[in-house]
Simulated assay, not measured.
Amino acid sequence: MGKAGRIACIFTPFVLTIASLICIIMVGLGCTKSSSSTLNDLYFMRINLKDISSQGSQTVTEIETILNDYGISGVSASQVSDVLGKLQADSSLADFYQIGLWGYCDGKEDSHNATSVTECSKPQSEFYFDPFAVWGLNSSTVRNELPSEYNKIMNVYKTVSKWMFIAYIVAFAVTLAEIVVGCFAICSRWGSCVTTLFAVLAFLFTTAASVTATVLFSIFKSSLGPTLKAYGIQVSMGTNMFAATWLAVAFSLGALIFWTFSVCCCSGRSPYGPRNEIKSRNLANEKAPYTYEPLGAGQTPYGHQQHTSYPPPVAHGGDLSKSHNNQRSSAYEPFRHA
């Protein structure tokens, strides 16, 4: 098949690896630039505070009804009312906050539910979103009035989010290395073998990061969603971000399968190379039937060494040495049997 066939064989996994890397980059770029509408739609979770003002005007009885509907215990209606009053009085709060891998963005929402991002935080490694630290209420008594389950879940979220960040960084680095090493796979199957090892690591870390993100924010929403809803805070997950991260997993798996296939098939050695020409020529000489070849010195027509102590007969009046040389030069093997 040669080099052209080898290039065609690794084209598919090479493209799939690049597609997986692009998806991972999109996950990392989410919530990093306020002026980009595309990147603003990439977030793991959105926390909407627009309805805090309407919830803050509710009576204690109405708040108790909400707590009972969601089965929230450990917090009283008066405590919820105090928190809502303090949050409502803080005019610096944005209408919504979007959580990304490196940071968060905030913005405003108009009466037609159209959102616009105002600003994004500075990218930070091992980022996790602490609502009360972001809202400037970390030193107030608001945190103490929240249910105990909130602090437990936030501690778990802080720990797991660090592992998620590391998994995405490793997945990006290994996938990039997979592309670089994949260039050497054009030359030989050994290059495909080494590239396949990087493909295995890229698939494992990309899958681990995606599973961690999905489970983490799903638990965050299901556990804290009802509690925060009593305060007028809406929690939702970003479909675009999770679509990008799981597409990265799908592309990485496809690349792994095709890289493994390229190890077993599509050799880069040309069938018209010097070594193959010599082998084919020797094979043709060995298998060609009924060919005539001159005999070597001292050989019989069947390839055996001739042993005799008597010189061949000489014609009358002839030279002995001349007759012997003529007989040797004119001897041919009549047939070569397979």
Rank of each mutant, 00 (worst) to 15 (best):
K158T: 09
K158D: 09
V181W: 08
K162G: 04
M164A: 15
K162D: 06
V170W: 00
V181I: 15
M164E: 11
A185I: 05
C183A: 14
C187N: 05
T159G: 10
C183Y: 02
I166V: 15
C183G: 10
V160T: 09
V160W: 00
S161G: 04
I179E: 04
A185N: 09
V160N: 00
S161R: 10
G182V: 02
T175G: 11
V181G: 08
T159D: 09
E178H: 10
A171D: 05
A167E: 12
L176K: 06
K162H: 09
L176M: 13
G182N: 04
V170M: 06
A177S: 13
A167T: 09
K158P: 08
G182Q: 05
A171P: 06
T159Y: 04
F184R: 07
L176T: 15
C183P: 07
E178T: 15
K162T: 13
A171T: 04
S188K: 05
K158A: 10
M164V: 12
A171Y: 00
Y168D: 10
Y157H: 13
L176D: 03
F184Y: 10
K158I: 07
G182C: 04
V181R: 03
E178W: 00
I179D: 06
A173T: 05
A171W: 00
E178R: 09
T159V: 12
S188G: 07
C187E: 02
W163I: 15
K162M: 06
M164F: 07
K162C: 07
Y157R: 10
V181T: 13
T159S: 14
E178A: 14
K162L: 07
L176Y: 01
F184H: 02
F165I: 02
V174I: 14
V174Y: 00
K162R: 12
F165E: 02
K162I: 15
I166D: 06
C183F: 15
Y157D: 11
W163K: 08
A171L: 01
K162A: 10
V180D: 01
I186L: 12
E178Y: 02
A171N: 00
V160D: 00
A167L: 14
V181A: 14
I169D: 03
V160I: 15
S188D: 08
V180M: 11
I186E: 03
Y168W: 07
W163A: 15
F184N: 04
L176F: 14
I186M: 13
A173F: 03
S188R: 05
C187S: 13
I166Q: 05
T175C: 13
V170F: 07
S188N: 12
E178G: 11
I179Y: 02
F172G: 15
A167R: 00
I179P: 11
L176N: 04
V181D: 07
V174N: 02
T175A: 13
E178Q: 14
F165H: 12
V180E: 01
T175L: 07
K158Q: 11
I186K: 04
V181Y: 05
F165T: 03
K162W: 03
Y157V: 10
F184S: 12
I169L: 15
A177D: 03
V181K: 06
M164G: 14
Y157W: 03
A177G: 15
F172E: 03
V174P: 08
L176W: 00
A185L: 08
T175E: 03
K162P: 08
C187F: 12
A173H: 01
I179L: 15
C187L: 12
I179N: 06
S161I: 01
I169M: 09
Y168T: 08
M164L: 08
S161H: 05
